[in-house]
Design a protein around this nucleic acid. Structure first.
Lengths: 250, 250
DNA sequence: TAAAAAACAATCATTTTCAATCATTATTTC
DNA sequence: GAAATAATGATTGAAAATGATTGTTTTTTA
């Protein structure tokens, strides 16, 4: 029996039972005790079970879901609140742009408005919008594997067909002087184009981005409204002269 | 036993079982250990299985669904062969268009050429191309949920930025008089635009599409080369006067 | 609580599997 | 048909997996 086979066997057994004993595994697989021990150690390191004296136990559902969620996207309390607030800004019949990135992704499930049209440059966003029954368009462009965003001139060119009521952008830095910034100039040029083509632009962001600045300039702080969880009082004062800040957690 | 046959055999075995051992494959196919190892390496590179010590294992369900949209159907020798043949037409440094659809999806794992650029209107295609390390662009446009294709004027507009060495299109009907056809006019207009912008266009299709015609006209038979598994002699004669037919299974 | 039993991690020798290489045998291609 | 190309099978030292053994830790139970 191959290592891989045993691993599958053990995990399947743990789907039915709460715990498995080493002795029963040696009998069932014909492998030695040492080998089974090694298997259990490996599987524990992979986060697929929990070792207990004499065998192994199913991982609690809660933890299981966590590890699963970690792989896809785990939204923090803050992100969910931001998402809910941002989504509430979308009204019936709006044409909106939704930027790539996890913060903007979090707003999609909360969209309540009907008959809206959405354009996105996020790979996952497109699918999730369509699944929700929202008329979903994409900008086109090159798929940047790391962020799963469509970028570059292809995306800009695609954008030039559309006009938005509202746009929701993610950024990496918000700085009084440096304005909104992001590390990748290819992405910055897309965001700038969106700003040009939207009546209202919202920057959705968690608190960690305030007073940070990264390489590529997108726009001045004045050019968009900030949607965030809770902004520190100090930064809030600095920004409030320049633009509106909507806070989800008050 | 031919290489091709062994590959199909191994993949189908993996549809039933979680893992296959090298030893059992040598016995079943009569090939040497070296040959089986090579087969497994090839199939792993194509992303169709995962090598493990002593054999090979099914790849994770999620990826499986991605690469082979048809979960239930067996790997047909025809589809693999068509994919392999079509992929072999792509040369180093080519800029290619790859249409949405499962037949074109099957060619991606077999692409060997380096430094190529690919544009696609298939949602899954984009991701799989990028995973293979291929520079992947998308046309943009509206996501049609049923076929996961990007269609409409958005896609056409996106296409107009590019020029292709080779294009690979899927169709629903190939008919001497009706030409190439597809049910959705929104998709047909995209395919027509591709034909305009490619030096060579290949229609990748299984035998079932011959002498069928559907609603929306794409192009005349003369305008593309047909890549298929095995065309019936009768239809072959009819088409050979008009265009080239490349057969994967001879 | 102390002794016995069971389970443990760590180590080592053995076996199995691996990738790389080479010579041989089909299969194209000219 | 000859030369080039691709596929195959055998051989190799290296790497991985295995099972037995060790002394230690944990659990049981007397």
């Amino acid at each position: 029996m191959l290592t891989e086979e045993r691993h599958v066997f053990i995990l399947n057994l743990l789907k039915e039972k709460e715990v498995v004993k080493i002795h029963e595994l040696t009998k069932a697989t014909g492998a030695s005790e040492s080998t089974i021990r090694r298997d259990l150690t490996d599987l524990e390191e992979a986060g697929l079970l929990r070792r207990v004296h004499g065998g192994a136990a199913k991982i609690t559902k809660k933890r299981m879901e966590l590890t699963m969620a970690e792989k896809t996207t785990r939204f923090s309390e803050e992100k969910l609140a931001i998402g809910r607030l941002a989504a509430s800004l979308i009204e019936d019949n709006d044409c909106v742009f939704i930027d790539a990135g996890t913060t903007t992704l979090a707003l999609i499930p909360f969209i309540k408005a009907s008959n809206i049209t959405a354009v996105t440059n996020g790979y996952d966003h497109l699918q999730i919008l369509a699944e929700k029954g929202i008329e979903a368009y994409t900008t086109g462009g090159r798929l940047k594997q790391s962020t799963k965003a469509l970028t570059g001139t292809g995306a800009v060119h695609g954008l030039q067909q559309y006009w938005f009521d509202k746009a929701f952008l993610g950024v990496n830095g918000i700085h009084v002087k440096a304005g909104y910034t992001t590390p990748d100039p290819e992405e910055a040029v897309v965001k700038r184009e969106v700003l040009k083509r939207a009546q209202q632009t919202f920057i959705v962001t968690d608190a960690s981005k305030f007073q940070e600045s990264t390489f590529a300039y997108i726009a001045n702080v004045e050019e968009a409204v900030i949607v965030t969880g809770k902004a520190p009082d100090k930064t809030k004062k600095m920004f409030q002269e320049k633009t509106d800040i909507k806070e989800a957690l008050s």
